[in-house]
Simulated scan of single mutants.
Amino acid sequence: MQKRKLNYRFHNPNSVAATADYILKILIDANSEKVERAIQAAADQVAQKAECDEGYSS
C-alpha cells in the first residue's frame, strides 16, 4: 500500500502584521517562565560577581 502525502492548507483572513503579533503573543506566553528563570539566573550571577568584587581590595 502506497502512503499518501498529507497536504494542509490554512485560511488566514488576518493581515501579516496581525498574524505576526498573534504568534508573538503566543510565544511570549509560552516562554515567559523560561525567560523569568534566565533573567533571575543572570541577576544572581551579577550579584555574586558584585559580592566577589567587594571582597577583593587592591
Rank of each mutant, 00 (worst) to 15 (best):
G55D: 05
D53G: 05
R4Y: 13
G55V: 01
I26E: 05
A30N: 02
E36V: 06
Y22N: 09
N14A: 11
Q2W: 13
R4E: 15
I39E: 04
Q2Y: 14
A47D: 08
I28S: 06
S58N: 09
D29S: 05
V46A: 08
R37E: 09
Q2A: 10
K25A: 10
I39Q: 03
A43L: 05
L24R: 08
C52N: 15
A42F: 08
I39Y: 01
E36K: 04
D44Y: 07
Y8N: 11
A38D: 11
Y22M: 11
Y56A: 04
N12S: 01
L24V: 07
S57Y: 14
C52E: 15
A41N: 06
S15T: 15
E54Y: 02
E33I: 01
L24Q: 14
I26K: 03
S58G: 08
D53I: 04
Y22A: 14
N14W: 13
R4F: 13
N12V: 13
V46N: 06
I39D: 01
R9P: 06
V46P: 01
D21M: 07
H11Y: 15
R4K: 15
H11M: 13
Y8S: 09
N7M: 15
Y22P: 00
A41H: 08
N14C: 10
E51N: 05
V16W: 07
I23A: 00
S57M: 10
L24K: 09
E33Q: 02
D29W: 06
K3T: 13
V16P: 00
S32T: 01
A18R: 12
A17C: 07
K3W: 10
E54R: 00
A47Q: 08
N7Q: 15
F10I: 14
Y22C: 04
E36P: 00
V35S: 01
A50K: 04
K34L: 03
Y56M: 07
D21W: 06
S57A: 09
Y22L: 10
D29Q: 03
A41M: 03
S58Q: 10
A50C: 06
T19E: 05
R37D: 11
A50D: 10
S57W: 15
S15Y: 02
R37N: 08
M1T: 11
F10A: 10
A30G: 00
Q2T: 14
A38F: 03
H11Q: 12
L6M: 14
A50N: 09
K49P: 00
A41D: 05
E51M: 04
D21A: 04
I28K: 12
G55M: 03
V16C: 06
K3L: 15
A41K: 01
Q40N: 09
L24T: 13
L24W: 01
D44I: 07
L24Y: 12
E36N: 05
A18N: 15
Q48I: 00
A42Q: 07
P13D: 02
T19A: 03
F10D: 10
A18K: 12
E51W: 01
D53L: 11
Q40G: 02
A18Y: 11
A38E: 15
L24A: 14
R9Y: 13
I28N: 08
V16N: 11
R37F: 04
N31R: 05
A41I: 01
K49L: 14
Y22K: 02
S58R: 11
I26F: 04
K34T: 02
G55A: 07
V46Q: 10
A50R: 04
L27W: 10
Y8K: 11
T19M: 03
I23N: 00
K3P: 08
Y8D: 09
K5D: 13
E51F: 05
Q40T: 04
T19P: 00
Q40V: 09
